[in-house]
Amino acid sequence: MNSAFTHKGEKILKWMKEQPSKNFRKIQEQLVEAKCSMSNGTPEAVAITCAVMSFFSEKEETVYKCVEAAATKADIEKNLPDMPCLIGFGESRMLASRFMLSIDGVVVNDHISTFAAGLAMLFCSYYNFNIMYPLDCAATLEFIQRCFVGINPDRGSKVQVKKNCKRYSQTHPKVLSLISAIADVDWRS
Rank of each mutant, 00 (worst) to 15 (best):
F123N: 10
I131K: 14
N128S: 11
L86Q: 01
D186Q: 01
E33M: 03
E77D: 11
M53K: 06
T42I: 07
K35D: 12
N2M: 01
R146F: 01
V106P: 04
Q19N: 14
C66Q: 04
A51H: 09
F143T: 11
S125R: 07
E33T: 13
V159T: 15
G105F: 05
L122R: 13
R93C: 06
G9E: 03
Q160K: 14
D184W: 09
K174L: 05
I144F: 14
V52K: 00
L13V: 06
M132A: 14
V46P: 13
A47T: 07
P153D: 15
D186H: 05
S169C: 10
N40V: 01
K17T: 14
M121S: 10
N130R: 14
G90F: 04
T72A: 05
E29L: 11
L135H: 10
F129C: 13
S3Y: 04
V185E: 10
A117L: 06
Q170H: 12
I48F: 06
R98A: 01
C147T: 12
V149A: 13
S189W: 03
R93E: 09
M1S: 12
A139C: 12
E91D: 13
V63G: 06
R25L: 13
T42Q: 05
E58R: 07
K162S: 08
I27F: 02
I144W: 09
W187Q: 13
V63F: 05
H7Y: 05
L80K: 00
S39M: 11
Q19W: 02
A47D: 11
I151D: 12
